[in-house]
Design a protein around this nucleic acid. Structure first.
Length: 424
RNA sequence: GUGGGCGUAGCUCAGGUGGUUAGAGCGCCAGGUUGUGGCCCUGGAGGCCGGGGGUUCAAGUCCCCUCGUUCACCCCA
């Protein structure tokens, strides 16, 4: 590409969200906000970028998201910053900085950035809805958080959502397990898939997650973390599972569920949509991170949270033909063929009264203006021609049903539609 | 980071083995109806066929490069 003219385009892996799709986005956030409020969460906004150390320490340097997918940059003051690749670490950083009373329950909606190759359901900028609870390791919190996510998905009309759950143990029991797993893997090294035969030592737990038949075969004969949990973790996990069952939520125990970030302890879970054909069918996931606050320099504080991928959830809704959101239609659309002055005043008066009123511009023909009125989805057109202009009146024409046209004085016209505005 | 598919009008797409002024449907604009949308009819605007190079008398079509996009691996929401 040399002397070519520049045609601006959204960067690879990013997307513009425009009407009418953006109405659906608004509605999705509104649903989440509503449920989060019901569960006692308050909205938190954190910066879109943080000191890189927040992520390096928080997520662990070996996490791919950190090691090779972060958008890192230096600002003009020489600070090393990174666009956030996920939502938890920034909220934890804010918690440490402000020390709100616990349990601290926060929800957020924010973009995340990862330098990955875009593909179905995977973007360089995606948007997450999520919650975090800091300051309690009560298993009931785990249950509530998972139940909340479930409720959210159900409320969108999603049927084909699968919930898997596992426990990652804690500092007391996981190291011993990882050692046991390593020992086991080392004796079966040659039977692993090509990739893990080379790299299993970097992160033995990852091998559990591998879908290749070779690895599955090996690991299915190996030690299982759930069976080697310490007493506390084991009790905790059973309480979570019991609580979910009690609430009527079916969670599938998946001993292979190992999530990507270092900070997870105990409960981990993932929601996936079986309606999605693409490889990326995880629509939400999360877990407990009882060591994270301390890792980032705060007092020992347990925490748990989850994130939901908005783009993927909407794709899942598409696949299930659910959560179809229509944009709003004007209550009335003004057509004025006498120069537009009457439309200008009437539309302003209606909007002052809270009525969604629209009009045509550019002094087009009545036919053209009515065509725009029809397309706008408005129920009624308010027409002003020479006759109406002279008598200070407006003709109402129904656009969605058959009805006799009627001509009202401007005052009557305004009060008829103002009632609509007051109601909403 | 690795590998495959695809780039033609605002959108969805046609354009056998290269061959005149590049087409359709939808959308948009105007008219048919000098005060009336939707249905119908007529007309119109809108394309450096992603970009660059090459082969050829001749390239939307063939070859190379490049950019973009898409799908998969990896990883994740």
């Amino acid at each position: 590409m040399t002397e070519e003219q520049f045609i601006p385009q959204a960067p690879a892996g990013t997307h513009d969200v425009m009407p009418p799709e953006s109405f659906r986005w608004q509605a999705l956030v509104a649903r989440f906000a509503e449920i989060a409020t019901t569960y006692g969460f308050g909205l938190v906004h954190t910066p879109m970028f943080e000191d890189v150390r927040v992520f390096h320490r928080g997520l662990g340097d070996i996490a791919e998201v950190v090691s090779k997918e972060m958008y890192e940059f230096e600002d003009r003051g020489g600070r090393r910053l990174a666009l956030r690749p996920e939502g938890t670490a920034p909220v934890v950083r804010a918690f440490i900085q402000h020390r709100p009373p616990t349990p601290f329950k926060a929800w957020y909606v924010s973009p995340s950035f990862r330098y990955e190759r875009p593909q179905a359901g995977r973007f360089r900028q995606h948007h997450q809805l999520g919650v975090e609870v800091l300051g309690s390791d009560d298993a009931d919190i785990d249950v509530e958080v998972i139940a909340m996510a479930s409720r959210f998905f159900r409320g969108l009309g999603l049927q084909d959502v699968r919930l898997i759950i596992n426990s990652m143990g804690c500092e007391a029991c996981r190291p011993a397990y990882v050692t046991a797993l390593s020992d086991y893997l080392s004796t079966h090294q040659s039977s692993l898939c090509d990739e893990h035969a080379e790299r299993w030592e970097q992160n033995p737990l990852r091998v559990l997650d591998c879908k290749k038949e070779a690895c599955v075969l090996v690991t299915s004969g190996g030690p299982i973390l759930r069976e080697q949990l310490c007493q506390e973790c084991s009790v905790h996990h059973e309480r979570v599972r019991g609580g979910l069952t009690e609430l009527g939520l079916s969670a599938i125990q998946d001993d292979r569920l190992v999530r990507g970030f270092d900070y997870y302890t105990r409960t981990t879970f993932e929601f996936s949509s079986s309606a999605l054909e693409s490889a990326q069918n995880a629509i939400g996931g999360g877990g407990r991170y009882d060591g994270l606050v301390e890792i980032l320099g705060g007092p020992p504080t347990p925490g748990i949270g989850f994130g939901v991928g908005m783009e993927r959830v909407l794709l899942a809704c598409d696949a299930e033909n659910s959560f179809e959101v229509a944009g709003p239609n004007p209550a009335v659309f003004m057509v004025d063929v006498t120069g537009g002055g009457h439309a200008r005043r009437i539309v302003a008066a209606l909007r002052d009264r809270g009525v969604f009123a629209e009009r045509a511009y550019d002094g087009r023909s009545m036919k053209a203006q009515l065509k725009v009125a029809d397309r706008s989805g408005a129920d009624f057109a308010g027409i002003i021609g020479e006759q109406e202009a002279q008598t200070r009146s407006v003709t109402i024409r129904a656009l969605r049903h058959e009805a006799e046209q009627e001509t009202l004085s401007v005052e009557e016209f305004l009060s008829r539609f103002s009632a609509l505005g007051d109601r909403s």
